[in-house]
């Protein structure tokens, strides 16, 4: 792909999965402000999951499988498909290694059918704002136009994030939900859990994934580092339990779950892990959530009785 050709792109497509949720709402606004029309794949549904099982590498984790399915859905829908190479979204931290090869895998899988547009996102080297500026200039847009688009994109992301429930100090007796942003924001995966919690009248929050920086801890993966940081600052008096929502075969979670378990054991906060896969068994999920919430309720009454 030569540099001059790129300005010919009139439309950009992107899968609504994985990295898309790391910067919620940002990329659409960026490309739209530059005057490109944007096609984002439809929200995950049953068909997406089925397609994922058919076309994706069987040993991938669920979010990566869904990414492949979403990608398959938007190939050919626009002049170019955008997939950034996410190496880090937080300074002094790194992203999951699987995100580093995404554009190359997309080229390997769909390179014959569509050009792939990519940009490195590495907060250790430059801010995502600067990454957007570079992407704009690579696409052949004027500096001022790119700058305005990047600013609009960042503020759009901020508004989107402010609309989400995050760890705020005012709440009492809440459950902390730990999950990667791409699980949290994918309603198909996370909505049954949140729906169940709401139905049980339970207050729940999740860590602030939009934070600029955190103290350097033992966990170097960005989202997991934020979760770890949130757990360290957790007040046992306020937070009654932690629910870790993980996707099947998530490599990062397989390690950090053990670390979190040890940490929360010391803090005396109950911890439950829920692993979600592409199979549709929601009854088990409901039962486990009910049992967890109930036993925490009993814990309080028993403590008071003693």
């Amino acid at each position: 792909m030569s540099g001059s050709k790129r300005t010919d792109y009139r439309s950009v497509a992107m899968p609504r999965a994985l990295w898309y949720h790391l910067y919620p709402g940002m990329w659409e606004v960026f490309f739209r402000s530059l005057g490109l029309s944007v096609v984002v794949s439809a929200k995950t549904d049953r068909a997406t999951v089925e397609r994922a099982a058919l076309i994706s590498e069987p040993e991938h984790c669920l979010p990566l499988k869904l990414h492949d399915a979403h990608l398959h859905g938007v190939v050919g829908a626009a002049d170019v498909v955008f997939i950034p190479r996410v190496l880090s979204t937080l300074t002094e931290h790194i992203a999951c290694p699987k995100l580093g090869s995404l554009p190359d895998c997309a080229v390997a899988q769909f390179g014959d059918e569509t050009p792939i547009l990519t940009i490195d996102i590495d907060e250790n080297k430059r801010s995502v704002h600067r990454s957007m500026l570079e992407l704009g200039s690579e696409l052949g847009f004027r500096r001022n136009a790119t700058r305005a688009a990047a600013a609009a994109a960042l503020s759009a992301m901020k508004t989107e994030r402010n609309g989400l429930k995050t760890c705020i100090d005012r709440e009492d007796d809440y459950f902390l939900i730990l999950a990667h942003p791409y699980i949290l924001h994918d309603a198909y995966v996370s909505a049954p859990v949140f729906g169940k919690l709401d139905a049980m009248n339970v207050k729940w929050l999740f860590p602030d994934y939009g934070c600029e920086s955190i103290e350097s801890g033992p966990i170097k993966w960005d989202a997991c580092g934020i979760m770890h940081d949130a757990l360290l600052r957790l007040d046992a008096g306020r937070c009654v339990g932690v629910i870790h929502l993980s996707a099947f075969n998530c490599g990062c979670d397989s390690i950090v779950m053990e670390v979190f378990r040890g940490l929360l054991w010391e803090k005396n906060i109950p911890y439950m892990t829920l692993v979600i896969d592409e199979h549709e068994g929601r009854a088990g999920l409901d039962t486990r959530l009910e049992a967890f919430v109930d036993s925490i309720g009993w814990r309080n009454t028993l403590d008071n009785a003693v």
Binding site: C61, C105, G251
Partner: peptide, 28 residues
């Protein structure tokens, strides 16, 4: 099984296999 770096390049290995006519057996 589930090796993070190796599994993530499997689609690329498959592409190399077809492009360069090299049989690849994937063993996890």
């Amino acid at each position: 099984t589930g090796c993070m770096p190796e599994i993530s390049v499997r689609p690329i290995l498959r592409k190399i296999s077809t492009d360069m006519d090299l049989p690849v057996l994937e063993c996890s």
